[in-house]
């Protein structure tokens, strides 16, 4: 439980951090809250030669509203997100999910950017990032670019984040007024990670029919994903118990379910359906 020896540098700006990353030639990892990286280093799943601490770069922290998006700095902690008035008002599902991550210590130290860049397939936030059509602001040697959540999660612990780049902020689409949303999770009894986590955001038009549905699912597959078939099936229908039962079976459509000691693929597929039903039913009220 003691990591291998490593060098440590503290970066004071994003530009400096990028330079340090470049200079390290692939040997370095970024240290933010440390709640994904350090446990892996302790059990030597990863042994980076160098850590670049970006944890004190002030401009990477904070939450602001920009038009119809909520911009969350990469270093903002889960606790800050869960308690933030803007988040609670404009994207309550994000606060709801953030409040269920790990335990109090993890939420006080762990960061939104670190969590999403780590891309654990059972992490809570990727489901919400997908359901809120997040955009990832990254800064690298060639400047800044924006990546869509839809193409960001490539596999377990694998993202589209370019080499030597830093995730600086994540912006979440504020659901239309009157939209309903929720995040429902089955926590693993050991790790607290999602065995299944369903983030659902549903908007209804003046005719009472669903005109927009976004469902992000985590914990059950290689990466979090959008349940697009289920989303499509919802649109144009009235959100009712009957509709929910019909569309929920589509929530794992086309996905290969993960299997482990706690839950087989078959059971995960079943849970995906049940938790999609339960999440959507919460939106009926």
């Amino acid at each position: 439980m003691i990591p291998s020896a490593f060098d440590y540098t503290r970066a004071t700006s994003v530009e400096e951090a990028v330079k340090l990353l470049q200079a390290a030639g692939g040997e370095a990892k970024l240290l933010a809250g440390g709640h994904s990286l350090l446990p892996m280093m302790k059990i030597k799943l990863t042994s980076p030669g160098k850590l670049i601490d970006i944890g004190r770069i002030k401009e990477l922290s904070g939450i602001r509203k920009e038009g119809n998006r909520l911009v969350v700095g990469a270093l903002t902690t889960h606790r800050q997100v869960a308690a933030d008035p803007l988040v609670r008002k404009y994207a309550p599902v994000l606060a709801e999910a953030a409040s269920q991550i790990g335990d109090i210590q993890v939420r006080n130290r762990g960061t939104v950017g670190g969590n999403l860049a780590h891309a654990d397939p059972a992490s809570d936030l990727p489901a919400v990032a997908l359901a809120l059509e997040a955009e990832f602001e990254v800064q690298g040697p060639d400047g800044k670019e924006t990546l869509d959540a839809g193409g960001f999660f490539l596999g377990p612990l694998i993202t589209a984040l370019p080499e030597n780049s830093i995730l600086t902020s994540v912006s979440f689409a504020i659901p239309p007024e009157g939209a309903k949303s929720t995040y429902l999770k089955y926590p693993h009894p050991a790790s607290g990670y999602a065995v299944v986590g369903v983030a659902a955001v549903v908007s209804t038009g003046p005719d009472g029919m669903v005109n927009d549905a976004r469902i992000g699912i985590t914990g059950v597959a290689d990466t979090a994903y959008r349940a697009e078939e289920a989303e499509r099936a919802l649109v144009g229908k009235k959100l009712s118990e009957q509709t929910i039962l019909e569309v929920a079976a589509l929530a794992s459509e086309g996905q290969e379910m993960a299997s482990d000691l706690f839950a087989s693929a078959e059971y995960r597929r079943h849970l995906t359906r049940v938790y999609t039903i339960r999440a959507l039913k919460r939106l009926l009220i």
Partner: peptide
């Protein structure tokens, strides 16, 4: 309800961390 140490057929303990071995909370 939760705890159980599991070995695979090679004798590797596959419930060897608190991420897998569920202590009651």
């Amino acid at each position: 309800l939760w705890e159980g140490a599991v070995y695979d057929e090679n004798g590797q303990l596959i419930s060897g961390t608190f991420m897998d071995y569920a202590m009651p909370k």
